[in-house]
């Protein structure tokens, strides 16, 4: 009796462990490999060049099927009185800041998704709706998204936005670096339309060289810092400015990738399903041991009674 119980238990627990290990191998997403191409694209934004015409906002709305209106209405500079953030219907916005060095030249900063090399949204998404394309763009897949807004909590730049006004099927909206246009071989809309070439699109490594070169040539007009070169492990969009970036509403971030520690812990805990299987094995053995002890006690009691 005892032996057969023991054999059964061992069989069942071994089967469970094996099953879980197999499941773990097939279903659990392993550490996302570094699929990034070394020639991945980025964008260099030179805020000393930007004139704040907001044509990029207009082009972005057109490219993403949002109501754009007439381009002439974008000449209205009174919108700069307020600091704006990307919304579900405007994926990029330009904010204006006072220039302390040259008062007549305000600093205009375009805000949109930074397309991080190690994106926190991709790591945080529980259903894998976000992905990092090997060419650098971070894109959102509406077929997978369940709308939990974890990405919005995770993003160090607070970029993903949610269609709060929609009851059913609200989208997560953020810059996708014009995924559709890039698939067709076109430039992203904002870069295409920029009249002063404040935005430079190209391989990220080249952009860093260009940025360094610009700072070297004009050390007086630039703050010697490329925002985005190392922030949260490097971002696709990088900024040059003549002011400290904290004064331009850029968050001060460390150089480590945002998902680094949490991702390591998560993937460590669930690697090959070993810890959950161990937990079940522990509980199972505890169940068996206590059951065994109890039946012995009962036998002993029965013996005493009779």
């Amino acid at each position: 009796m005892l032996n057969s119980n023991r054999r059964q238990f061992l069989k069942i627990s071994a089967g469970l462990t094996a099953g879980m290990t197999v499941m773990g191998n097939t279903e659990v997403k392993a550490n996302p490999e570094n699929i990034l191409s070394p020639d991945r694209f980025g964008v260099l934004v030179d805020t000393t060049v930007c004139v704040g015409c907001r044509n990029c906002e207009w082009a972005c709305k057109n490219a993403h099927g949002h109501e754009a209106g007439d381009i002439d209405t974008y000449k209205d500079r009174s919108v700069f009185l307020k600091k704006r953030r990307p919304q579900s219907h405007s994926l990029t916005v330009v904010n204006e800041f006072k220039n302390t060095k040259f008062r007549s030249l305000p600093i205009d900063v375009k805000v949109q998704c930074m397309h991080c090399d190690r994106p926190a949204c991709v790591s945080a998404c529980i259903v894998g709706a976000f992905s990092k394309h090997k060419d650098g763009r971070v894109i959102w897949d509406g077929d997978k998204c369940i709308g939990c807004r974890y990405c919005m909590v995770a993003c160090p730049f607070q970029i993903p936005t949610f269609e709060y006004e929609k009851t059913i099927q609200p989208d997560i909206c953020k810059c996708d670096l014009c995924n559709d246009r890039q698939e067709k071989g076109l430039l992203p809309a904002c870069i295409d339309i920029c009249p002063v070439e404040a935005l430079t699109f190209g391989p990220r490594t080249d952009l860093i060289k260009i940025a360094r070169e610009r700072i070297k040539r004009n050390p007086d007009s630039y703050n010697n810092y490329i925002y985005g070169e190392n922030e949260v492990g490097g971002t696709g969009w990088m900024y040059l400015s003549n002011k400290k970036f904290e004064e331009l509403d850029f968050p001060k971030l460390h150089d480590k990738p945002a998902p680094g520690v949490s991702e390591a812990i998560q993937h460590g805990i669930f690697a090959y399903f070993v810890p959950p299987a161990m937990l079940y094995a522990l509980l199972g053995s505890m169940m068996w041991i206590t059951k065994n002890r109890q039946s012995k006690e009962m036998e002993a009691e029965d013996g005493n009674n009779s």
Partner: peptide, 8 residues
């Protein structure tokens, strides 16, 4: 809370 049910 979530609002997008189709992927479920």
């Amino acid at each position: 809370d979530i609002g997008r049910f189709a992927p479920l």
